[in-house]
């Protein structure tokens, strides 16, 4: 299982604080996002582009490090991915 936590605008679009994605194997970010979009279509419509990547206004992080679009890095099971608005200005 990979837990996806939503913050800021992605949370508003998803309508939930987090989502548990059931998987027994590590996933690419693209694969994870596809499963999230399947579970929460509103999130997919608002936050993903046509190629299934996060729009540039949003980003994903794993252990305080950004997960880049098209990354070949696998996200381990039992990890927690954070999706937030890219602009953290304040």
């Amino acid at each position: 299982m990979i837990t996806v936590e939503f913050f800021s605008i992605p949370k508003r679009r998803a309508g939930v604080n987090e989502l548990e994605v059931q998987t027994d194997v590590p996933l690419l970010l693209t694969e994870l996002l596809a499963q999230v979009a399947q579970a929460i279509p509103e999130f997919g419509e608002c936050c993903l582009d046509q190629s299934g990547q996060l729009q540039r206004h949003y980003l994903a992080m794993l252990d305080s490090e950004r997960l880049r679009p098209h990354s070949e890095a696998l996200i381990p099971c039992d990890s927690r991915v954070i999706i937030l608005s890219a602009d953290v200005g304040g």
Binding site: F7, I9, I82, S85, D87, V88, G90
Partner: peptide
Amino acid sequence: GPATAKYRELGTAANLLVFNRL
């Protein structure tokens, strides 16, 4: 558009929970 949605819908205060989580 979406680039400013954070500011429009939540304001800069949206950072609070993000930074707390991190």
